[in-house]
Design a protein around this nucleic acid. Structure first.
Length: 310
DNA sequence: GTCTAGGTCCGTCAAGTCAG
DNA sequence: CTGACTTGACGGACCTAGAC
């Protein structure tokens, strides 16, 4: 694709895929516009390009239904966007994985999100807890989520939750759980007082109040009304637990972990189903566009048979 | 009001998979 | 080999809509 040329493509994001119009621009134009986010665009021919600047698309990763958006692509390089291209050993390993493992929602979802670092993967939610422990400088997009009322919120790099609603921004400062709970990161659903539902990553989400106190957010269970966010001080959690026998304690720990794992597994399954539904929508739109294009070309050929191919 | 079928959510178990 | 993780399957609790 040459500079200035437009193409229709599928924009893959953490929320699914959408149809976009891709425009090649120069690096200078991108520098002027500022890098707002990154995304991966799969062109109809199978080529994958990396989006370094998304114009008018601050909410482009919040895609509920397929729609045409205009984005600008700064660089296009087959070699740069495919990490395993030319890496035969990882290819072999991947093939072996596919053959030997049953499908995992985590893996399937990550595959659907493509292999590029630009697209947030489930594993990367866990990496947020680890802090900046990697030497690779990769600019990840800020994950943007949508509430049930159509409003957006983002979890910034520092852990701040920004809810972009009609009444302005609300912010929460989140802190990690200190790495005590190694394992799966759970995206938890919560509901604000005005009925908005949203979800946030972290199996042990700890919210720090302005006064410096920390609270653990849990999803409601048992007799707690639906939609209520329960905040518990971590200290009180520990003090409320007695000192059971070793065997009983191990069993309780195992059950608790499996309980959380089951929740996370179900959440991934739902997310996987949603991504499939989004994909169906996108492909239906694309199919309709192609059929329209074909119909137009047929009409053009009927009216002017000699101009075919020009 | 009661009963029932269908749906959803959750906890638990068991088996498979993976990494150390 | 082992412990941790993942996920399908199962059963129970709860909710809702429809029939009576």
């Amino acid at each position: 694709m040459s500079e200035g040329q437009q193409e229709t493509a599928i924009l893959s994001t953490s929320e699914g895929e959408t149809l976009v119009t891709v425009t090649q621009v120069s690096a200078e134009e991108v520098a002027q516009a500022g890098t707002t986010t990154m995304a991966l665009v799969q062109l109809p021919g199978g080529q994958t390009v990396q989006v370094q600047s998304v114009i008018q698309a601050a909410q482009s990763s919040v895609i509920q239904s397929p729609q045409i958006q205009t984005i600008q692509v700064a660089t296009i390089s087959d070699g740069e966007t495919s990490q395993e291209s030319g890496d035969s050993s990882s290819d072999t390993q991947k093939r072996r994985e596919i053959l030997s493992r049953r499908p995992s929602y985590r893996k399937i979802l990550n595959d659907l999100s493509s292999d590029a670092a630009a697209v947030p993967k489930i594993d990367e939610e866990k990496a947020e807890d680890d802090g900046a422990s990697t030497n690779n400088i990769v600019t990840l997009p800020t994950p943007i989520y949508q509430t049930s009322t159509g409003q957006y919120f983002a979890i910034a790099g520092g852990g701040a939750i920004q809810i972009n609603g009609a009444e302005g921004l609300q912010a929460l400062t989140m802190a990690g759980a200190g790495g005590q709970q190694a394992g799966a990161t759970i995206v938890q659903y919560a509901q604000t007082s005005d009925g908005q539902q949203f979800f946030m990553p972290g199996s042990q989400v700890v919210v720090q109040s302005a006064s410096g106190e920390t609270y653990q957010i849990r999803t409601p269970s048992g007799g707690i009304p639906q939609g209520m966010v329960v905040a518990t001080s971590p200290a009180s959690i520990q003090s409320s637990q007695g000192v059971p026998e070793e065997g009983t304690r191990k069993r309780e720990v195992r059950l608790m972990k499996n309980r959380d794992a089951a929740k996370e597994c179900r959440r991934r399954k739902k997310e996987y189903v949603r991504s499939l539904e989004n994909r169906v929508e996108v492909l239906e739109v694309q199919n309709k566009q192609l059929l329209d294009e074909l119909s137009g070309l047929k009409n053009q050929f009927r009216l002017n048979p000699g101009s075919a191919g020009q």
